[in-house]
């Protein structure tokens, strides 16, 4: 019986949830399901490749597989900015259904094979981030005007063009200090559990939720297509099952961590602001406008993918919203 050992590139330190709740459990599931035939060696971010270059590492052969967010591939092909997480995109409830039943994983796999000669599986998902830690109370979109808001990528573009905010580029390690000293007015970073560990609540009064700029997110695991295709069918199936299991588990295990963090946060002296529907709808309009403009531009350049993915996400989201009233949800809209 042939044995396989795969070096896996990841994007974060060993202790971050991206490894404790996604990469490590995946490696364990793969080993268990294949009776130890497949061994996944998890390497922390930066060991096999700079963290933003994990896809390149797979392409060059430094890593056999890589786990990370498609957003790391950037805006050259806007597909990557829309498919795993998107401002005003899918929520914690609708993300996994779209990925596995709404065509998400299918499109992702097809896109990777066609455009990157890689095989991809959804691996890992997570809940909403915190919208902002802020010195200014942001309740309406008008409050965003002129706010020095630390963020990255397409959300920076939407905030700037749609709402007149002043996006600031600050590296993660300097965020705390810049927020503390009011060098920036507001910032987004990650989920409640991560943000709380980094202590942003200590230095800015307002904590603004929910994180509609990243309502829910998913990661993928990629491998060179020829390498994947050479694997026996039963091994492929077992790896796919391990990935899917990890996705379901990670979303909820991270929620549990966030709950623990939120309970602590609410005991503190911060003021929590919950964004209302007017705010959410205006952001949704601006975000979709951005997506369709980017998709239209890509289409004229001969890339139909962004439009296809955007349409799929937004249709699924609208359908979910329309039909979900029949469901009993334990969700509430504020902390009272």
């Amino acid at each position: 019986q042939q044995q396989y050992t795969f070096r896996m590139a990841t994007i974060a330190p060993k202790t971050a949830v991206y490894n404790t709740d996604i990469s490590d459990p995946f490696a364990a599931h793969v080993a268990r399901l294949t009776d130890g035939k497949v061994k996944v060696e998890v390497f922390e971010g930066g060991v096999l490749a700079p963290i933003f270059k994990i896809y390149e590492a797979v392409e060059d052969g430094r890593a056999d597989i890589a786990v990370g967010p498609p957003t790391f591939l950037g805006g050259q092909d806007p597909t990557n900015l829309i498919i795993s997480s998107f401002p005003s995109g899918l929520g914690v409830d609708s993300l996994i259904p779209w990925l596995y039943l709404g065509g998400g994983q299918q499109m992702l796999t097809q896109h990777r094979r066609e455009k990157m000669k890689m095989h991809s599986l959804i691996l890992g998902a997570g809940p909403s981030e915190i919208f902002a830690h802020s010195h200014k109370a942001i309740r309406t979109v008008e409050d965003l005007k002129g706010v020095k808001f630390r963020t990255l990528g397409n959300w920076a573009a939407i905030l700037k063009d749609g709402f007149g905010a002043a996006p600031v580029v600050v590296p993660g390690s300097e965020l705390y200090g810049m927020l503390e000293k009011k060098g920036i007015d507001a910032m987004e970073y990650s989920m409640p559990s991560e943000n709380k560990a980094l202590g942003y609540q200590e230095v800015a009064r307002y904590i603004i939720m929910p994180g509609i700029h990243a309502g829910a997110w998913s990661f993928e695991v990629v491998m060179k297509m020829e390498k994947w295709d050479a694997l026996p069918k039963d091994i492929q199936d077992k790896i796919a099952v391990a990935a899917k299991l990890t996705t379901y588990e990670s979303l909820h295990s991270i929620v549990m961590k966030d709950f623990a963090a939120l309970e602590e946060l609410m005991k503190g002296k911060n003021e929590i602001i919950i964004l209302d529907d007017t705010f959410k709808n205006k952001v949704k309009d601006a975000s979709r406008k951005w997506a369709f403009e980017a998709a239209a531009k890509a289409k004229t350049e001969g890339n139909p993918w962004p439009e296809r993915v955007a349409k799929s996400v937004f249709d699924f989201q609208d359908r979910w919203a329309k039909l979900s009233p029949y469901m009993v949800m334990d969700h509430r809209f504020n902390f009272q």
Partner: peptide
């Protein structure tokens, strides 16, 4: 301190 804090996920200011 800056590098340590970023690896350990803790507050640099503290």
């Amino acid at each position: 301190a800056v590098i340590y804090a970023s690896v350990a996920n803790m507050s640099v200011g503290k």
